[in-house]
Design a protein around this nucleic acid. Structure first.
Lengths: 230, 230
DNA sequence: CGGCCCAAAATCCTATAGGATCCCGGGAAC
DNA sequence: GTTCCCGGGATCCTATAGGATTTTGGGCCG
């Protein structure tokens, strides 16, 4: 009941928000499909009111869209233009965060080394599974992406800038959706690992401009690999 | 009644959002003061339900804060750390937008010239009023800030990146709050005008890196002038 | 056979009511 | 005198009901 109490403590609206958020990230909901308020309320066993508020909250994340008096829908898939803009925005944020984080490279580098090791480990795991079966289990992929995300988030954390961190989190929700569509080739695991290593070494170099350049190259390569697969 | 119909068309919740948003931007609400849902509903003549949803929407802008089961409050004033982070984030976004906008300098420069002229005009207006009376009318100040904002927003518009634009708008709400506290000296009107001119010329130069550098200097100077006044 | 109109169902939106929680002030116990 | 407890008031949160709007399906007209 302690758990129940914690949930009550955050309010039912926040719980509904988390639930719907997860539903959207799993991706089993086709983009553009309706998110009926009453339907959601029935499925979740709550009244429409907290569902409405959770959807208002989700609307600002870009995961759902709203048309007044017409209801909510799962956000449509990203078109080519949005994809390009998304990567441009990521370059801006990630290079900016790298520039700020460079001032705290000494404390950042050990963390980065650890996360990079985890990232490569998960990558090798994926490669091993890839050789065996023809479909990699979802869990392994999620672990790999989580390790990749942790690496980037560590740099933002080191920037110690709450506004950049918030903006990156917002983009992260959209980015996650991207992975469902343009599942970038699993063959880029080695390259991504090498680029992460280059980023770490750039932080070690002491040159403040080096991490910025390394990160810019990394995102550009991710972009090329993602769009190339289309 | 056409207007009434348009308002109905957007939903009462959106209207309440706009109203509360304006209330917050005028700044007559002391930071940290409570935003009671029932109180707001009574003042606006609506039921608590749309007020609640408008506040959920506002929560994600950073203008109001929420404590579960305790209610909403006007966001507390920005402390020194937040101020520093805010300017760092602005540098990241504005230099990034300038880098992207540089590719479309030819169409951007005429617009910037026009907005810069308007900015300087409003600036001279403020200076003239400053010489006459001891307090500059609020309208003149708002016109000056609006011209300043339009200049920066034009660069973001030229970046043609909806994510950067959205992020800048979000920061804009917080930035506006800053002006109420750290009303940066009116004496910086001339300097700001010169810096804007430098930005325009940097776009004209054809060097993609020039606008980035000019914008970085501009924000750094704004920061110095703002924080110096404290 | 295609297009238009209208009515019914579904859905959204707002209002209201009741239960749960937090805050505050008074009184008793140590 | 201080601390603890507790009861009333205010506020938030969720549930439910009713009005307004959109959508859909059938029938009618051209």
């Amino acid at each position: 009941m302690g758990a129940r109490r914690d949930l009550d403590r955050r309010g039912l609206r926040d719980r509904v928000y988390d639930l719907v958020f997860e539903m959207l990230l799993t991706g089993d909901l086709p983009p553009g499909s309706r998110l009926g308020i009453d339907t959601l309320a029935r499925d979740l066993g709550v009244s429409p009111t907290p569902v409405r508020e959770a959807l208002v909250h989700l609307e600002r994340t870009g995961l759902v869209t709203r048309e007044a008096l017409k209801g909510y829908r799962v956000a449509p898939p990203l078109d080519a233009a949005q994809l390009a803009e998304l990567f441009d925005a990521r370059v801006v944020l990630e290079t900016g965060a790298a520039r700020l984080a460079a001032a705290r490279a000494d404390t950042l580098v050990p963390t980065l080394r650890r996360l990079q090791a985890r990232h490569e480990q998960e990558g090798e795991h994926v490669i091993a599974l890839l050789g065996g079966a023809e479909r990699v289990p979802l869990e392994a992929m999620q672990a790999y992406f989580a390790a990749d995300g942790a690496f980037h988030q560590a740099i933002f954390a080191a920037s110690q800038n709450r506004y950049l961190i918030d903006m990156y989190d917002d983009l992260g929700a959209v980015t996650h959706r991207l992975r469902q569509v343009a599942l970038r080739g699993l063959t880029d695991v080695k390259e991504a690992g090498a680029e992460h290593r280059a980023v770490v070494e750039a932080f070690e170099s002491g040159d403040p401009a080096a991490p910025v350049a390394a990160m810019r190259r990394h995102i550009a390569n991710v972009r090329a690999r993602s769009l190339g697969g289309l």
